[in-house]
Amino acid sequence: MKRNLTQALEHWIAEGIRSIGQISITPQPEGGFELRHLEDAGRDDLTLHTSALDARGLSFFDDAKAYRPLKTAPTLRHGWRLQVQTAQELRIALDYFYPAMTALWQSQLAGELRPVALRETLNRQTGMYAATKRLQDEEGQQLVGRHCAATSCTKRIMWEFAPGQPLTELSEQKRWPAPEGTHAIPLICQEACNHLVPACREVVKKRERAAG
């Protein structure tokens, strides 16, 4: 059956959803929605944007104008508010701020999201990342705890290290499921990302170089 993420988004907001990641979502009395950084809640000096496509520029750099290659890093810039007129525009804006996050939540609610264990992700790598197949359990567990810490990424991890082998070094903030009753769309990590896979390679290569 054809999905409709725009309608789902409207439904969630009607049911009380008011934020995603570091962004507040406020339905406007005259229709439409306003987005802003959660920490900019009380400010009246924010720069107004009215195109959903502006979300791209707002999402790409942090307050210090540094590039944000990982959009779920807790480094969203401040000082803006974005007003959009329709749920479709809201969807486009949120896809820039938090790519795929509303979609993964929709899939999760529909029971269609399959978490992929880290070993499975690494075992299908080829080329320069084929080395990640040689990642050892202990160094891998330590790496995930360090690399995926909530200070670097605010997604909650669904996947295991290997089937039946849970991750051991995650803080409470990183564990799935997200606490209920927060009125927030949870940020889901259903599979190791293309930041973690190169980090796995580095760990393997460093160990192998040290061993000569």
Binding site: P99, A100, Q190
Partner: peptide
């Protein structure tokens, strides 16, 4: 190398 990743994008499609 960026988001959405190839592993995520099909979830975004209606």
């Amino acid at each position: 190398k960026e988001e959405p990743s190839l592993r995520q994008v099909l979830h975004m499609v209606d």
